[in-house]
Design a protein around this nucleic acid. Structure first.
Lengths: 201, 201
DNA sequence: ACCCTACTAGACAGATCAGTCTACCCAGTA
DNA sequence: TACTGGGTAGACTGATCTGTCTAGTAGGGT
């Protein structure tokens, strides 16, 4: 009955892989459907059998970028052994992201780039906002054991993080991510001291 | 002789104004030449008499965004009366920017958005990088009277600033810019104390 | 043997893209 | 008056865009 087998249909997977490469390297609007299907080595009808429109492919692309980052983060989280390291794992996941291989080099956070070119009401912008909210929630969660009031520090770290992604994307290197990580390290309360963090606001 | 008169040719100015509105609201790639000329109320040939190509219009658009921000900043700088206020004037200029009127609302820094959709080697990306470098230099310059080593603090503030622009653009409000300004205020050395700044790294 | 599903190649439609060209208009000025 | 320069409207080219359609193929399950 093909009950719960439903082979993942290689065409869909290849399309998503090609979309990841092409959309990221050239921008979503500037990348035509033909570029995606030819990079995927797939017929045009295979795209429209798997996705209702280019827009739906874009949505799937955005969802996949979120999952991809979560994967990087979980790996870093697994290797972390203290609350402090768990907070910094967020920065490390983004650094891993920046150091991955891209056809035209590192160009910043794919989700941020997508939001920047998507028109005002596009649902993709909401998806990107949700991703960023989740990252900030993760920061606050792992900050909780370190301070009574994680909110403001989480906001501070989130700003450093987004700033680092924007600037590192412009320059094509992970340098700003490492700088931000260093600053974040200095902002975190040291485990020994009891007073909740040395930072005001 | 029209020596140094050379009327600014209303068509060019209207094209730049229309480009500012349209490119910002819908993205550069997604905005066709026809949308720009019809918003400008100008004939297509007037565009190509003033600019060699769409790409050249884009370049002029980016240059204008830089000048526009400099104008906002200079106004804030003029009103500032202490080194501390001069540093914060950078944040205020960005807040003014976020609170201006836009056809589809605030969507973040126009230069950052442009860079995000421009392909890897495009000269516009370099122009955006130069703008950001200049902002960081301005931060360092006005930080100099406050600390012996402005570099690291300027980097910290620059990260907060870019993060605030990215996040506020996603959410369509100036809230994150105000948050970043508040954090920055807490990071600045207080004028009275002699030791250069209470922040490490 | 049969069918079903996923996939293929490629023609096609209709819109829109950047950019060119022609022909005309009108205000200022020599 | 006649010239000139910045401007106009709109037809046009050729490329490219998203999306549709048809006809056919290859492989697994029954």
């Amino acid at each position: 009955m093909s009950e719960r087998t439903a082979r993942p249909a290689p065409a869909r997977a290849r399309l998503l892989a090609a979309a990841a490469t092409e959309f990221y390297a050239s921008g979503i609007t500037a990348t035509g459907i033909d570029a995606v299907i030819s990079a995927a080595g797939v017929a045009k009808m295979s795209l429209y059998n798997n996705f209702a429109s280019k827009d739906e492919l874009v949505t799937a692309y955005l969802r996949e970028r979120h999952e991809e980052w979560l994967g990087l983060f979980r790996a870093r989280l697994h290797a972390a052994s203290s609350p402090r390291e768990r907070v910094l794992a967020v920065f490390d996941a983004y650094a891993d992201h920046a150091n991955a291989e891209y056809r035209e080099g590192w160009r910043g956070c794919g989700l941020l780039n997508a939001a920047a070119e998507l028109p005002a009401g596009h649902p993709g912008r909401a998806a990107v906002r949700e991703h960023k909210d989740e990252v900030e929630a993760i920061l606050a969660e792992h900050l909780a054991p370190l301070t009574d009031d994680p909110g403001p520090l989480a906001a501070h770290l989130a700003l450093l993080l987004e700033g680092a992604m924007a600037k590192s994307g412009l320059e094509g290197s992970d340098a700003w991510v490492r700088t931000a990580r260093g600053i974040a390290e200095g902002l975190l309360p040291v485990p020994g001291s009891r007073r909740a963090g040395g930072i005001r606001l």
